[in-house]
């Protein structure tokens, strides 16, 4: 296999990167870890004339806790940076665990948070847990920066609200009242498989009562989606097995999966029911796992 020729740039600043993206418009693509983009280029699904490598943007490679505000995850952190992050281990192991389930170790060493999000693949592993935790993305472009809620970022398979000249700079997980969160990925083998269904939940439980809940589903619609009816149903209920099972049933009614080479829509729908129930149970019982 081979890659077609392209012009290559490796800017030293975010501003310069945005400037290049603005200058070349649709001809240009951002290259971060390359684990998705190089594959697409080899498979002739993508042939950018200009490749903007963001490898030099060191400032986007940090994971930090900002006191009183939340966790800031740089867009160029690799999945394994998340897996190994002490900040995440302490505050949101559920995010580290979601990252740990992506592809395989070599890909986790290259694939970045920004890439996983901006490729907008419906089965991506990070968006559901970020949505469940009410995270936002900071986008930077030639006209300045803006913050978009993770759940509003995606508009379709491979499509986001990002402008041609915008980069994802960071993901911000705000401090919150949620007491537990969890992401379950269901793939067709234990490693190196895309999610057939991914369910992320976050819950605020007090004295056995669910005060608040967020449920996000991956791989079962054109974009990661929130299961809002399920969330509404859960609020104020006791976290009993029956309630969580009922929540699963409601969630399965909120997804719109397709049938493809990996699974039928019917199967995915039922998996949403099962894993919503299971992810809720874990988040309720075990916290942010």
């Amino acid at each position: 296999m081979y890659l077609p020729d392209f012009e290559y740039y490796a800017p030293d600043s975010i501003a310069e990167a945005c400037q290049l993206l603005s200058q070349f418009g649709a001809k240009a693509k951002v290259l971060a870890g390359g684990t998705d983009m190089v594959v697409k280029m080899k498979n002739e699904l993508l042939a950018p004339e200009v490749v903007v490598s963001v490898k030099n943007l060191e400032q986007l490679k940090k994971i930090e806790y900002v006191a009183g505000k939340g966790v800031c995850v740089g867009a160029l952190c690799t999945h394994n940076d998340l897996v190994k992050s002490d900040v995440l281990k302490e505050r949101y192991p559920s995010v580290a665990n979601a990252a740990r389930q992506m592809a395989n170790n070599q890909v986790r060493n290259r694939g970045t948070v920004g890439g996983n999000i901006s490729n907008a693949v419906p089965s991506a592993d990070l968006p559901p847990i970020f949505i469940a935790l009410n995270a936002t993305a900071k986008l930077v472009g030639t006209k300045g920066e803006r913050t978009v809620a993770m759940e509003d970022l995606f508009t379709g398979p491979g499509k986001t609200v990002m402008a041609q000249d915008e980069l994802i700079a960071e993901v911000f997980i705000p401090d919150q009242k949620m007491t537990g969160s969890n992401y379950i990925k269901f793939g067709l083998r234990k490693s190196g498989a895309l999610a057939v269904v991914g369910v992320a939940v976050a819950v605020q439980v007090e004295n056995g009562v669910i005060k608040d809940a967020r449920v996000a589903l991956g791989a079962v619609a054109a974009t990661p989606v929130r299961a809002k009816k399920t969330e509404e149903f859960l609020k104020g209920k006791n976290a009993t097995d029956d309630v969580l099972a009922e929540a699963g049933v409601i969630a399965s009614g909120e997804c719109k999966p397709i049938s493809d080479i990996r699974a039928s829509a019917e199967y995915r729908t039922d998996l949403v029911r099962i894993f919503t129930k299971r992810a809720l149970r874990k988040a309720v019982d075990e916290g942010h796992v």
Binding site: L31, G33, G34, V38, V51, N109
Partner: peptide, 12 residues
């Protein structure tokens, strides 16, 4: 860190 050399640009 182990990576797949088939997915990495040499220039990177």
């Amino acid at each position: 860190n182990p990576v797949n050399a088939c997915l990495v640009l040499a220039i990177d």
